[in-house]
């Protein structure tokens, strides 16, 4: 009798079908040393690990340094209008819930011109990942104050230093209704960055990640101390939070316990921004309503069926 090998029916596709190169398009034109490179690499790694089909993945961006991101991904992408990354992405997700949608936005794009869309995107809570590349400056136009620039930032618009306190994007997001995922990370800790993006990808709902990003050209002096000071970062640790291995944890000196299911506590922790750079998961709630689910309920209905439905509705009012 012939004996069968246990895997003779194994018709699954090979495990690693897409490589890193399959997600890399042209060479990124950000400045050398820019944190954008790190984020790009981390996102490409995630795509590879999850084997996301490039034809089922969309990156939508607005305008700014960060918003060049879709050009560097060999997937679908939309380099859109200033501040309009969220509405375009929401539109894509609304009618194509099968796609993996990533929103790439910067501090100007999201917190300034696009602030209105940001608010409603958080409320819509569609299943997407939103990465806020926050370098606290308008870099593409050569140094103007952005809504997140620290108080006193000297720039072309404020030669004697900015006079208004910056927006805290974490606190602002946590204050919005139906918020479901808020996390913060920094680009110069690649392990934490990757773990955060992964956690965001796995979240069901809109995952909002603020990435504190270095700008080596315009904000070098502002970031240098934070990057090289081991005391400058505080890690939010919890079993439901961002998972780091032992070696990864060892590289941080300050770790506090924070339960991401407690929104009141999350708002308290968000205030820490004034003293330190807290990184980790602030808040997560997967039970919130999702607008994309609502939008998907009538997908797949044929045009004829729609016409019939409308006719039926109209006939009710026929005299």
């Amino acid at each position: 009798m012939i004996t069968f090998k246990p895997d003779f029916c194994d018709v699954e596709l090979p495990k690693s079908q897409y490589s890193l190169d399959d997600y890399s398009s042209s060479k990124a034109r950000w400045c050398s040393g820019c944190g954008g490179h790190t984020i790009l690499n981390s996102v490409q790694k995630l795509c590879k690990e999850e084997q996301l089909p490039p034809e089922k993945t969309v990156f939508v961006s607005g305008i700014g340094c960060s918003s060049r991101f879709p050009h560097y991904m060999k997937t679908y992408g939309f380099h859109g209008l200033h501040g309009r990354a969220f509405p375009v992405a929401s539109g894509v997700k609304f009618r194509r819930p099968d796609l993996n949608v990533f929103v790439i936005t910067g501090d100007g794009d999201c917190c300034s011109i696009g602030a209105g869309h940001w608010v409603h995107a958080i409320r819509y809570n569609m299943n997407m990942v939103a990465l806020l590349f926050d370098n606290s400056i308008y870099g593409l136009t050569k140094k103007q104050t952005s809504p997140t620039s620290p108080l006193g930032t000297v720039s072309n618009t404020h030669p004697t230093g900015s006079i208004l306190p910056p927006i805290n994007p974490i606190q602002a997001t946590l204050g919005l209704p139906n918020v479901s995922f808020v996390a913060q990370t920094v680009d110069w800790k690649p392990a934490h960055l990757h773990a955060t993006i992964r956690k965001a990808y796995e979240h069901k709902g809109l995952a909002f990640v603020r990435i504190v990003q270095r700008c080596p050209i315009w904000m070098k002096d502002s970031y240098e101390p934070t990057v090289h000071d081991p005391n400058a970062i505080t890690v939010l640790n919890h079993q439901k939070g961002i998972a780091l291995n032992e070696k990864g944890m060892k590289s941080f000196r300050h770790v506090i316990e924070h339960d991401p299911s407690d929104i009141v506590k999350a708002r308290e922790v968000a205030e820490l921004v004034k003293e330190t750079t807290p990184i980790g998961l602030f808040y997560q709630n997967e039970n919130n309503s999702r607008y994309d689910e609502y939008g998907a309920h009538n997908l797949g209905i044929s045009p004829e069926a729609r016409i019939t439905a409308i006719d039926t509705m109209m006939n009710r009012y026929a005299v």
Partner: peptide, 20 residues
């Protein structure tokens, strides 16, 4: 962090591996 700084400025010394 794959920030390209060393490989752009000193490409004759540094390079990336498969994991970039």
């Amino acid at each position: 962090t794959s920030c390209n700084d060393c490989v752009d400025k000193y490409g004759h010394i540094f390079t990336y591996n498969d994991e970039k």
